[in-house]
């Protein structure tokens, strides 16, 4: 038996918002530790890795590991039936082929139940080692969102350059060129407003803005975002989900021909 209850449907809605543009179907892997999901986009250029630890739930029970194969669009439609303040419970039998969503209104006067068929999803899992990166940039999530949106009006690729001076985002296209520079401001009082750059050496990498714009759909989940970069390795874009999990995106760099 798997059963997990979260106090606010809004959180699960935000998580779905953050994956639905990249992933069509995904296995939600449930264990006694929590729920995780790893899925690549159809062109295998990017990957999303989600972790929601059990301590983020009001109630959590998972008698044995179970993979819930879910069509993300179907789940998004069902979650749209919940109010943001509703409590939501997910429930699945060990050998079952459905997952049941129960929404309870804050005043407990309305209870809705939706059953969704599970899918058999044969997905490739990638082994991603935790590693130190050459440079990391932590910045307000809304700032990163704005930069990706603004530079998309100029070009398709952004060059991210980290130097002692700060981090520079540059895009160029037929109409011209745009450059946005952020300086380290780790002395700002409000932690969520800080730009904190760590760097072992200067580096410059290029990434497809189309995918970065998909990643910024997670902006509502966190105040800050951290970009981790190493030459010739995929970029990691991480949004922490309170203290109980994260959503990480990986994007393969563009390679010079």
């Amino acid at each position: 038996m798997f059963e997990a209850r979260m106090a606010q449907a809004a959180l699960l809605k935000k998580v779905l918002e953050a994956v639905k543009d990249l992933v069509t179907d995904a296995n939600w892997d449930c264990t006694s530790a929590g729920i995780s999901l790893q899925a690549m986009d159809s062109s295998h250029v990017s990957l999303v890795s989600l972790l929601m630890r059990k301590d983020g739930f009001d109630m959590y029970r998972c008698d044995r590991p179970i993979s819930l194969g879910i069509n993300i669009a179907s789940m998004t439609k069902i979650m749209k039936c919940a109010n943001n303040n509703d409590a939501v419970t997910l429930r699945a039998e060990d050998e079952g082929d459905t997952v049941v969503f129960t929404f309870e209104s804050a005043d407990q006067e309305k209870v809705s139940e939706f059953e969704m068929k599970l899918m058999d999803i044969d997905s490739e899992h990638l082994g991603i080692p935790e590693r130190e990166h050459t440079a990391t940039v932590k910045m307000p999530a809304s700032e990163f969102h704005g930069i990706c949106r603004d530079l998309s009006t100029i070009g398709e690729t952004v060059q991210v350059s980290v130097t002692k001076e700060g981090v520079q985002f540059t895009a160029s296209g037929d109409t011209g060129k745009g450059t946005i520079t952020l300086r380290n401001n780790s002395s700002v009082d409000e932690e969520s407003q800080q730009v904190v750059i760590t760097m072992q050496e200067e580096l410059s990498l290029s990434f497809a803005l189309r995918y970065l714009n998909f990643f910024t759909k997670a902006t509502a989940l966190a105040d800050s975002v951290t970009l981790s970069m190493t030459a010739d390795l995929p970029l990691v874009v991480e949004y922490r989900i309170e203290d109980t999990g994260y959503i990480r995106y990986f994007l393969a760099p563009k390679i010079d021909d």
């Binding site: 062109s43 490739e124 899992h125 082994g127 497809a208 563009k254 021909d257």
Partner: peptide, 14 residues
């Protein structure tokens, strides 16, 4: 010019 890398070439498929 540049080409878009794929993740499969960076991480091991389990």
């Amino acid at each position: 010019t540049s080409t878009q890398g794929r993740l499969d070439s960076f991480f091991k498929v389990l």
